[in-house]
Write a protein that binds this DNA or RNA. Structure first.
Length: 258
DNA sequence: AACCAAATCAACCGCCATGGC
DNA sequence: CGCCATGGCGGTTGATTTGGT
């Protein structure tokens, strides 16, 4: 016997929402606020499950939602964030005001994913791959490169607290541009069990703590002398943006395995 | 005009993290 | 500490729309 459904589906409406249902939901939330999704439908007079109500509100009815007309800037940002974060649609959406994870996910699947794939296919020559590999080797050192293991990690759920705990790696330093740091055990102390750098097709470079430590020890690469516990993704993002500004010669691209 | 295939996207599903008890 | 309810996430489905022949 399988897991019990999130809510009883008996007698519940499914499929596309009607304007009347939308109105009921909007009116209820305006009067009582968001939350308590499980009990909301009954109170609002809706024959929907709570999850369905939440999804409808979050993705379509919220007043601050922008829909359609994704600008070239947003387009570009999505691609870059996806290369950094992988399929963390909610994190990506969090960086695009008014956009929802569902919209971005759909947009990626129907537009960007293919485009990125095609772009990659265009770069698929042996020579280019060789050049990219050389750049990569220069960037992090042959010894380090030999140690990198490439995984296809299971997508990990990231909550704000876990972001703070687990992703407080400074990407710029990670890429080796600042002060040196001897003791990578500090990373373990910060609770970092893994780090992923995703390539354009969503595959990720995953370093577990040990590999990462080994990578830096072996190569005497660089990393922060300290990282405060409260670095949030937003901080990383800001630095990422700074990096992008400096990325005139495809520095990031050199980290993408073609 | 009719048909079909491909593209799009709203909605659903199952899983998991978190917090309260 | 374990259980449960809840919210939130990413993956997938399927109805609808669009484009090509």
């Amino acid at each position: 016997m399988g897991r019990a459904p999130c809510c009883s589906k008996v007698g519940l409406q499914r499929g596309p929402w009607t304007s009347r249902e939308d109105t009921l939901l909007i009116n209820y939330i305006q009067a009582h606020g968001e939350g308590h999704w499980r009990s909301l439908p009954k109170k609002a007079g809706l024959l929907r499950c709570g999850k369905s109500c939440r999804l409808r509100w979050m993705n379509y009815l919220r007043p601050d939602i922008k829909r359609g007309n994704i600008t070239p800037d947003e387009d570009d940002l999505i691609i870059r964030l996806h290369s950094l974060l992988g399929n963390r649609w909610s994190l990506i959406a969090g960086r695009l005001p008014g956009r929802t994870d569902n919209e971005i996910k759909n947009y990626w699947n129907s537009h960007l994913g293919k485009r990125v794939k095609n772009t990659k296919a265009g770069n698929n020559s042996h020579r280019i791959r060789k050049r990219k590999q050389r750049e990569l080797d220069n960037e992090i050192g042959e010894a380090a490169a030999a140690k990198i293991k490439i995984h296809l990690p299971k997508a990990t759920r990231v909550s704000p607290s876990s972001v703070a705990k687990n992703i407080n790696i400074n990407i710029q330093r990670m890429m080796g541009s600042s002060s040196s740091h001897e003791n990578m055990d500090d990373y373990a102390d910060w609770g970092i069990s893994g780090l992923e750098l995703a390539s354009n097709d969503g595959e990720a470079w995953a370093f577990n703590g040990e590999e990462f430590a080994g990578l830096v020890h072996d190569h005497d690469s660089t990393c922060p002398s300290s990282l405060p516990d409260d670095i949030m993704l937003g901080d990383i993002f800001e630095e990422y943006q700074e990096l992008l500004k400096q990325d005139d010669h495809g520095q990031f691209d050199s980290l993408i395995i073609a």
